[in-house]
Computed example of a mutant assay.
Amino acid sequence: MFLKKVIALFLILISLYFIPFSYARNIVEEYQIKAVYLFNFALFLSWPRYVFKHPNQPFRICIIGDDPFGIDLDLVIENEKVERRRVIVQRINSIKKSKYCQILFVSQSERSRMANIFTYLRRHPILTVSDMKNFANLGGMIQFFNTPNNKVRFIIVPETVDEAELIASANLLQIARIVHRR
């Protein structure tokens, strides 16, 4: 059953990859697409074993700042599991509350606090994701962007991912635009 879900979600991702956003807008809104990507990042990355202190500890996808997803991310993760762990969404207003997150979406409202966010996160294996312009250049791991023909894509910075002790699958790297840190 789990394998079928992974395959189905992967096929959705691939189909979204090839459908122009302007066409997909009638079917799925931009943040619905990003919500699917965000959940699927959890399926194509690995976290160190020490991250989960208890066998029943959930896999947390957190959003810091203004929430652009609304209910969309909650709907995507409903009844889903990552490595047999229940997936939950948490909205947080302080970077210190991100300590138990596995994925942290950094809202555009947090631009002025980026230095503090990255300073704090250096001590934790948390995947950082945003659609903020220059997020990858500032120290983020994955940055969403829209192509000129309005397709949602993402940049990944492998060095930053590696430093956080995360392992990105070859499949994820294959569909990403790879950017190396300067």
Rank of each mutant, 00 (worst) to 15 (best):
Y17V: 04
F18W: 10
P20M: 01
P20L: 15
F21G: 07
S22M: 00
S22E: 09
Y23M: 08
A24L: 07
R25Q: 10
R25W: 00
R25K: 07
N26G: 11
I27V: 09
I27E: 11
I27W: 04
V28F: 03
E29I: 15
E29R: 01
Y31Q: 04
Q32A: 13
Q32Y: 02
K34A: 03
A35M: 06
V36S: 01
Y37V: 08
L38Y: 04
A42V: 05
A42S: 10
L43E: 13
F44L: 02
S46M: 05
W47L: 01
W47T: 07
P48L: 02
R49E: 15
F52K: 04
F52T: 03
F52N: 09
K53V: 05
K53M: 05
H54A: 12
N56F: 13
N56E: 14
Q57N: 05
F59L: 14
I61L: 06
C62L: 14
C62G: 09
C62M: 08
I64G: 03
I64H: 10
I64Y: 14
G65Q: 02
D66Y: 11
D67I: 12
P68E: 15
G70I: 04
I71Y: 04
D72L: 08
L73R: 05
L73I: 14
D74I: 03
D74K: 11
L75R: 15
V76D: 04
I77G: 04
E78R: 11
E78N: 09
N79R: 13
E80Q: 10
E80S: 15
K81F: 03
V82S: 02
E83F: 15
R84C: 00
R85Q: 09
R85Y: 06
V87A: 11
I88T: 07
V89A: 09
R91A: 01
R91G: 10
R91D: 05
I92P: 01
N93S: 15
N93V: 07
S94L: 07
S94Y: 10
I95G: 07
I95S: 11
K97F: 06
S98E: 03
S98K: 04
K99L: 00
K99W: 13
Y100G: 13
C101S: 06
Q102C: 05
L104N: 02
L104Q: 04
F105P: 00
F105K: 09
F105D: 09
Q108H: 08
S109N: 10
S112M: 12
R113G: 10
R113Y: 09
R113T: 02
R113I: 01
M114Q: 12
N116A: 08
I117E: 06
I117M: 05
F118Q: 09
F118E: 11
T119A: 14
T119K: 10
T119G: 08
T119L: 07
Y120K: 14
Y120L: 14
L121T: 05
L121K: 07
R122W: 10
R122D: 13
R122T: 10
H124W: 09
P125F: 08
I126L: 04
L127C: 03
T128W: 00
